[in-house]
Protein backbone atom coordinates (compact mmCIF):
# COMPACT_ATOMS: atom_id res chain seq x y z
CA UNK A 1 0.00 0.00 0.00
CA UNK A 2 1.47 3.28 -1.00
CA UNK A 3 0.61 6.49 0.77
CA UNK A 4 1.94 8.70 -2.00
CA UNK A 5 -0.80 10.10 -4.19
CA UNK A 6 -0.49 10.32 -7.96
CA UNK A 7 1.29 13.49 -9.03
CA UNK A 8 -0.89 14.07 -12.07
CA UNK A 9 -4.59 13.75 -11.40
CA UNK A 10 -6.85 12.09 -13.88
CA UNK A 11 -9.48 14.18 -15.58
CA UNK A 12 -11.90 15.58 -13.04
CA UNK A 13 -14.77 16.32 -15.35
CA UNK A 14 -16.70 13.19 -16.19
CA UNK A 15 -18.34 12.77 -19.55
CA UNK A 16 -21.64 11.53 -18.16
CA UNK A 17 -23.45 13.21 -15.30
CA UNK A 18 -22.36 11.33 -12.17
CA UNK A 19 -25.69 11.96 -10.45
CA UNK A 20 -27.78 9.56 -12.49
CA UNK A 21 -29.76 7.69 -9.88
CA UNK A 22 -32.52 8.64 -7.52
CA UNK A 23 -31.07 9.82 -4.20
CA UNK A 24 -32.08 7.60 -1.31
CA UNK A 25 -31.20 8.41 2.26
CA UNK A 26 -32.64 5.10 3.40
CA UNK A 27 -30.23 3.30 1.11
CA UNK A 28 -27.41 5.52 2.35
CA UNK A 29 -28.15 4.68 5.98
CA UNK A 30 -28.46 1.03 5.11
CA UNK A 31 -25.02 1.13 3.44
CA UNK A 32 -23.57 2.56 6.64
CA UNK A 33 -25.35 0.01 8.80
CA UNK A 34 -24.15 -2.86 6.62
CA UNK A 35 -20.59 -1.58 6.36
CA UNK A 36 -20.09 -0.88 10.06
CA UNK A 37 -18.74 -3.93 11.82
CA UNK A 38 -20.17 -2.98 15.21
CA UNK A 39 -23.77 -2.87 14.01
CA UNK A 40 -23.48 -6.41 12.68
CA UNK A 41 -21.79 -7.53 15.88
CA UNK A 42 -24.54 -6.04 18.04
CA UNK A 43 -27.22 -7.80 16.01
CA UNK A 44 -25.53 -11.12 16.72
CA UNK A 45 -25.18 -10.17 20.39
CA UNK A 46 -28.93 -9.45 20.43
CA UNK A 47 -29.74 -13.00 19.42
CA UNK A 48 -27.19 -14.51 21.78
CA UNK A 49 -28.33 -12.33 24.69
CA UNK A 50 -31.93 -13.32 24.04
CA UNK A 51 -31.22 -17.05 23.87
CA UNK A 52 -28.86 -17.10 26.87
CA UNK A 53 -31.14 -15.04 29.07
CA UNK A 54 -34.07 -17.30 28.07
CA UNK A 55 -32.18 -20.30 29.39
CA UNK A 56 -31.21 -18.44 32.57
CA UNK A 57 -34.75 -17.24 33.20
CA UNK A 58 -36.11 -20.75 32.85
CA UNK A 59 -33.37 -22.31 34.99
CA UNK A 60 -33.96 -19.77 37.77
CA UNK A 61 -37.70 -20.49 37.94
CA UNK A 62 -37.23 -22.69 41.04
CA UNK A 63 -35.52 -19.80 42.81
CA UNK A 64 -37.89 -17.07 41.66
CA UNK A 65 -41.16 -18.93 42.00
CA UNK A 66 -40.30 -21.37 44.73
CA UNK A 67 -41.32 -24.41 42.73
CA UNK A 68 -39.23 -27.00 40.91
CA UNK A 69 -39.24 -26.99 37.13
CA UNK A 70 -40.95 -30.36 37.04
CA UNK A 71 -43.95 -28.79 38.78
CA UNK A 72 -43.98 -25.70 36.55
CA UNK A 73 -46.49 -25.59 33.74
CA UNK A 74 -45.33 -25.45 30.13
CA UNK A 75 -47.10 -22.10 29.75
CA UNK A 76 -45.05 -20.66 32.62
CA UNK A 77 -41.78 -22.02 31.21
CA UNK A 78 -42.46 -20.53 27.81
CA UNK A 79 -43.68 -17.20 29.15
CA UNK A 80 -40.56 -16.99 31.34
CA UNK A 81 -38.38 -17.53 28.29
CA UNK A 82 -40.20 -14.76 26.41
CA UNK A 83 -39.14 -12.29 29.09
CA UNK A 84 -35.68 -12.50 27.56
CA UNK A 85 -36.91 -10.43 24.63
CA UNK A 86 -36.32 -7.55 27.06
CA UNK A 87 -32.62 -8.47 27.13
CA UNK A 88 -32.61 -8.23 23.36
CA UNK A 89 -34.29 -4.85 23.70
CA UNK A 90 -31.42 -3.61 25.87
CA UNK A 91 -28.84 -4.58 23.25
CA UNK A 92 -30.92 -3.13 20.42
CA UNK A 93 -31.28 0.14 22.30
CA UNK A 94 -27.50 0.34 22.59
CA UNK A 95 -27.17 -0.48 18.88
CA UNK A 96 -29.71 2.17 17.88
CA UNK A 97 -28.25 4.85 20.13
CA UNK A 98 -24.75 4.09 18.90
CA UNK A 99 -25.73 4.06 15.24
CA UNK A 100 -27.46 7.42 15.44
CA UNK A 101 -25.23 9.03 18.08
CA UNK A 102 -21.79 8.12 16.81
CA UNK A 103 -22.16 10.54 13.92
CA UNK A 104 -22.70 13.39 16.34
CA UNK A 105 -19.80 12.26 18.51
CA UNK A 106 -17.39 12.13 15.57
CA UNK A 107 -18.82 15.07 13.67
CA UNK A 108 -19.60 12.78 10.73
CA UNK A 109 -23.17 14.08 10.75
CA UNK A 110 -21.92 17.16 8.90
CA UNK A 111 -20.98 14.92 5.95
CA UNK A 112 -24.64 13.97 5.71
CA UNK A 113 -26.09 17.40 6.42
CA UNK A 114 -24.18 19.21 3.73
CA UNK A 115 -25.48 16.79 1.12
CA UNK A 116 -29.07 16.77 2.31
CA UNK A 117 -31.77 18.92 0.82
CA UNK A 118 -33.65 18.81 4.08
CA UNK A 119 -32.66 17.42 7.44
CA UNK A 120 -35.89 15.52 8.08
CA UNK A 121 -34.92 12.85 5.56
CA UNK A 122 -31.84 11.94 7.56
CA UNK A 123 -33.81 11.33 10.77
CA UNK A 124 -36.46 9.35 8.91
CA UNK A 125 -33.86 7.22 7.13
CA UNK A 126 -32.06 6.37 10.35
CA UNK A 127 -35.36 5.45 11.97
CA UNK A 128 -36.41 3.25 9.06
CA UNK A 129 -33.12 1.35 8.99
CA UNK A 130 -33.00 0.87 12.76
CA UNK A 131 -36.70 0.02 12.88
CA UNK A 132 -36.25 -2.64 10.21
CA UNK A 133 -33.12 -4.09 11.81
CA UNK A 134 -34.73 -4.09 15.26
CA UNK A 135 -37.88 -5.76 13.93
CA UNK A 136 -35.93 -8.55 12.25
CA UNK A 137 -33.70 -9.02 15.31
CA UNK A 138 -36.60 -8.92 17.76
CA UNK A 139 -38.71 -11.41 15.78
CA UNK A 140 -35.70 -13.70 15.38
CA UNK A 141 -35.09 -13.43 19.10
CA UNK A 142 -38.73 -14.22 19.87
CA UNK A 143 -38.47 -17.35 17.73
CA UNK A 144 -35.14 -18.29 19.29
CA UNK A 145 -36.36 -17.88 22.86
CA UNK A 146 -39.52 -19.84 22.09
CA UNK A 147 -37.39 -22.68 20.75
CA UNK A 148 -35.10 -22.45 23.81
CA UNK A 149 -38.08 -22.43 26.16
CA UNK A 150 -39.67 -25.37 24.34
CA UNK A 151 -36.47 -27.42 24.57
CA UNK A 152 -36.15 -26.68 28.28
CA UNK A 153 -39.82 -27.42 28.91
CA UNK A 154 -39.51 -30.76 27.10
CA UNK A 155 -36.25 -31.77 28.72
CA UNK A 156 -35.79 -30.22 32.18
CA UNK A 157 -39.48 -29.72 32.99
CA UNK A 158 -40.43 -33.09 31.57
CA UNK A 159 -43.35 -31.95 29.44
CA UNK A 160 -44.56 -33.92 26.46
CA UNK A 161 -43.44 -32.64 23.10
CA UNK A 162 -47.01 -32.61 21.86
CA UNK A 163 -48.00 -30.38 24.78
CA UNK A 164 -44.97 -28.13 24.31
CA UNK A 165 -45.71 -27.67 20.62
CA UNK A 166 -49.36 -27.00 21.36
CA UNK A 167 -48.50 -24.32 23.91
CA UNK A 168 -45.79 -22.79 21.71
CA UNK A 169 -48.24 -22.56 18.82
CA UNK A 170 -51.14 -21.28 20.89
CA UNK A 171 -52.54 -17.85 20.20
CA UNK A 172 -51.78 -16.78 23.76
CA UNK A 173 -48.09 -17.58 23.47
CA UNK A 174 -47.76 -16.18 19.96
CA UNK A 175 -49.39 -12.95 21.10
CA UNK A 176 -47.05 -12.77 24.09
CA UNK A 177 -43.93 -13.60 22.08
CA UNK A 178 -44.55 -11.42 19.06
CA UNK A 179 -46.37 -8.68 20.95
CA UNK A 180 -43.29 -8.37 23.13
CA UNK A 181 -41.18 -7.64 20.06
CA UNK A 182 -42.84 -4.23 19.86
CA UNK A 183 -40.83 -3.17 22.91
CA UNK A 184 -37.32 -3.49 21.39
CA UNK A 185 -38.53 -1.94 18.15
CA UNK A 186 -40.19 1.06 19.81
CA UNK A 187 -37.37 1.56 22.30
CA UNK A 188 -34.80 1.37 19.48
CA UNK A 189 -36.64 4.05 17.53
CA UNK A 190 -36.85 6.22 20.63
CA UNK A 191 -33.12 5.68 21.15
CA UNK A 192 -32.50 7.00 17.61
CA UNK A 193 -34.60 10.07 18.28
CA UNK A 194 -32.97 10.59 21.68
CA UNK A 195 -29.49 10.38 20.13
CA UNK A 196 -30.45 13.03 17.58
CA UNK A 197 -32.13 15.30 20.12
CA UNK A 198 -29.23 15.11 22.58
CA UNK A 199 -26.56 14.70 19.88
CA UNK A 200 -24.98 11.81 21.74
CA UNK A 201 -24.94 8.05 22.17
CA UNK A 202 -25.59 8.49 25.88
CA UNK A 203 -28.66 10.57 25.19
CA UNK A 204 -29.91 7.82 22.92
CA UNK A 205 -29.49 5.13 25.57
CA UNK A 206 -30.95 7.24 28.38
CA UNK A 207 -34.12 8.22 26.50
CA UNK A 208 -35.79 4.77 26.48
CA UNK A 209 -34.25 4.02 29.87
CA UNK A 210 -35.95 7.10 31.31
CA UNK A 211 -39.26 5.96 29.82
CA UNK A 212 -38.77 2.51 31.33
CA UNK A 213 -38.08 4.01 34.74
CA UNK A 214 -41.08 6.27 34.22
CA UNK A 215 -43.25 3.21 33.63
CA UNK A 216 -42.01 1.66 36.88
CA UNK A 217 -42.64 4.84 38.84
CA UNK A 218 -46.10 5.19 37.32
CA UNK A 219 -46.89 1.71 38.64
CA UNK A 220 -46.34 2.94 42.18
CA UNK A 221 -48.79 5.80 41.84
CA UNK A 222 -52.40 5.62 43.13
CA UNK A 223 -54.60 3.63 40.76
CA UNK A 224 -56.51 6.66 39.52
CA UNK A 225 -53.32 8.36 38.38
CA UNK A 226 -51.57 5.15 37.27
CA UNK A 227 -54.48 4.17 35.05
CA UNK A 228 -54.03 7.45 33.17
CA UNK A 229 -50.26 7.41 32.91
CA UNK A 230 -49.30 3.76 32.48
CA UNK A 231 -51.21 3.05 29.24
CA UNK A 232 -49.74 6.18 27.69
CA UNK A 233 -46.17 5.03 28.21
CA UNK A 234 -44.56 2.68 25.65
CA UNK A 235 -44.18 -0.21 28.10
CA UNK A 236 -47.85 -0.14 29.06
CA UNK A 237 -48.91 0.05 25.43
CA UNK A 238 -46.73 -2.96 24.55
CA UNK A 239 -48.22 -4.88 27.48
CA UNK A 240 -51.66 -4.30 25.97
CA UNK A 241 -50.51 -5.66 22.62
CA UNK A 242 -48.73 -8.67 24.10
CA UNK A 243 -51.63 -9.48 26.41
CA UNK A 244 -49.73 -8.89 29.63
CA UNK A 245 -52.05 -6.05 30.60
CA UNK A 246 -55.22 -7.57 31.97
CA UNK A 247 -58.67 -6.08 31.62
CA UNK A 248 -59.41 -3.99 34.70
CA UNK A 249 -55.74 -3.33 35.42
CA UNK A 250 -54.23 0.14 35.42
CA UNK A 251 -52.36 -0.52 32.17
CA UNK A 252 -55.30 -1.83 30.18
CA UNK A 253 -56.64 0.18 27.25
CA UNK A 254 -56.95 -2.49 24.53
CA UNK A 255 -54.87 -3.35 21.51
CA UNK A 256 -55.96 -0.68 19.04
CA UNK A 257 -55.56 2.29 21.42
CA UNK A 258 -52.21 0.82 22.45
CA UNK A 259 -51.07 0.74 18.84
CA UNK A 260 -52.12 4.38 18.48
CA UNK A 261 -50.12 5.24 21.59
CA UNK A 262 -47.01 3.64 20.08
CA UNK A 263 -47.55 5.42 16.78
CA UNK A 264 -47.88 8.68 18.68
CA UNK A 265 -44.58 8.06 20.47
CA UNK A 266 -42.79 7.30 17.22
CA UNK A 267 -44.27 10.23 15.31
CA UNK A 268 -43.74 12.58 18.25
CA UNK A 269 -40.15 11.43 18.65
CA UNK A 270 -39.46 11.83 14.95
CA UNK A 271 -40.95 15.32 14.89
CA UNK A 272 -38.97 16.39 17.95
CA UNK A 273 -35.72 14.95 16.57
CA UNK A 274 -36.24 16.61 13.19
CA UNK A 275 -37.10 19.92 14.81
CA UNK A 276 -33.93 19.78 16.91
CA UNK A 277 -31.76 18.77 13.97
CA UNK A 278 -33.12 21.62 11.87
CA UNK A 279 -32.41 24.17 14.58
CA UNK A 280 -28.93 23.01 15.43
CA UNK A 281 -25.70 24.55 14.20
CA UNK A 282 -22.81 22.33 13.23
Amino acid sequence: MTSTPPTIPVSLRVSAAPIALRPSWIRAEWVKFRDLRRSRQLLVVTLIAGAVSAVLLVLTIPATRGAPLSETSTEDVLSASVLSVDAAAAVLVVLAAWFAGVEFRTGAITEALLRARGRSGIVAAKAVVIGAAATVAAVATAVAVTISGSLLAATLAGADWSEVLAVAGSSGHLRLAFGSTFLPVIYSLLAVFGAVVFRSVTGGVLTPLALLVGSMLAGWLPDALASVLRPLLPLGAVHNISGVAEAGGTEYIGVLPALLVLVAWVVGGAVLATWRLRRQDF
Binding site: A16, P18, I19, A20, L21, R22, P23, S24, W25, R27, A28, E29, W30, V31, K32, D35, E111, A112, R115, A116
Partner: peptide, 11 residues
Amino acid sequence: LDWIAAATGTA
Protein backbone atom coordinates in the same frame (compact mmCIF):
# COMPACT_ATOMS: atom_id res chain seq x y z
CA LEU B 1 -18.10 6.85 -0.69
CA ASP B 2 -20.87 4.26 -1.11
CA TRP B 3 -23.26 5.91 1.31
CA ILE B 4 -22.59 9.36 -0.11
CA ALA B 5 -23.28 7.99 -3.59
CA ALA B 6 -26.55 6.48 -2.39
CA ALA B 7 -27.60 9.68 -0.64
CA THR B 8 -26.86 11.82 -3.68
CA GLY B 9 -27.86 9.42 -6.46
CA THR B 10 -24.33 9.21 -7.78
CA ALA B 11 -23.57 6.39 -10.18
